[in-house]
């Protein structure tokens, strides 16, 4: 109701609306331009030499770059690795954070507050500043250069616990009590009652965990040596750095790496935007 009223009101009174739209659209063009350029370059024939700006976008087009990139590089493997690591990190994060949050929110036990504060403190630990000792620890566990090394250290997210805890706190204790009287164990309470209610929060955590893992550069950069284990952020530079003057193959690799996330974004835009504003994570 008030939304439409506000719309009417502003539309009637905003003399700069047209200019605002114009600027907004131009800026949108600027933001999209590099991505569009990348996609066009990826379908240009390899031997083209381009001088005028417009030439980047005009025919001829070809898909042969995609074939040669898939032949010459392991981009599909990196894509799989990134997806697998992202998926595993997300699933494990959701499981362990929700279990911990459930205990803190819904079970009365000793040192509850102390443990919560202990987790809260983790939010202040900047991962980048402890990456050298992390490397040493993972090395001494003999886990370097494995999927486990990529996944496990990234799953203990204190923010996840905190967000879920405050969500679980909202589940009324009466509901819990009545379920308990019905003979529900805590595990069933967790699985059947509390988790389903926390779906929006779980989705937000899933989204930022996945984006974080998908874009993680520093840790895989240090922890991975074998090319079979490269994720996209590590694999792309290893391939692209061998090119300095031909644009087409590097941009094709970029496009292959980006198209899945762009498509996922277009489908899940609402949830992603919500997830970002919900958790306030930074890229």
């Amino acid at each position: 109701m008030s939304q439409t009223k506000n719309t009417l009101l502003q539309r009637n009174r905003d003399p700069y609306l047209r200019i605002k739209i114009l600027i907004g659209v131009i800026l949108a063009g600027v933001f999209l331009f590099p991505i569009i350029w990348m996609l066009f370059v990826s379908v240009k024939p390899q031997d083209m030499s381009i001088t005028a700006p417009l030439n980047w976008f005009t025919p001829p087009y070809t898909l042969s770059n995609y074939a040669s990139v898939m032949g010459e590089s392991d981009v599909l493997l990196w894509l799989f690795n990134s997806a697998f690591v992202g998926f595993a990190t997300t699933v494990i994060t959701l499981i362990v954070t929700s279990l911990a949050a459930f205990a803190i929110s819904k079970i009365k036990f000793r040192y509850r507050r102390a443990i919560f504060l202990f987790f809260l403190a983790g939010m202040m630990v900047p991962g980048e500043a402890t990456i050298i000792p992390l490397f040493e620890i993972v090395k001494s566990m003999n886990l370097l250069d494995s999927y486990t090394a990529l996944i496990l250290p990234m799953t203990a997210s204190p923010i996840g616990v905190i967000i879920l805890k405050s969500f679980f706190d909202g589940v009324p204790d009466e509901l819990m009590e009545s379920a308990k009287i019905d003979g529900c164990s805590h595990w069933r309470l967790y699985w059947n009652i509390v988790l389903p209610l926390a779906k929006p929060a779980m989705a937000a955590i899933a989204i930022f965990t996945f984006i974080g893992s998908w874009n993680n550069f520093l840790w895989p950069f240090l922890a991975i040596v074998s090319e079979e284990l490269y994720t996209l952020p590590i694999g792309i530079p290893s391939f692209n750095s061998t090119y300095s003057t031909t644009y087409m193959l590097p941009m094709t690799v970029n496009a292959i790496a980006s198209l899945p996330v762009i498509i996922a974004f277009l489908i899940f835009e609402k949830q992603i935007v919500k997830g970002v504003s919900f958790t306030g994570i930074k890229g």
Binding site: A88, V91, I95, L143, D145, S146, Y147, T148, I151, L229
Partner: peptide
């Protein structure tokens, strides 16, 4: 299953 999967892939590269 998750743990199993992890150990499996962890060992693979070893």
């Amino acid at each position: 299953g998750m743990i199993l999967l992890l150990t499996a892939v962890g060992c693979q590269s070893q």
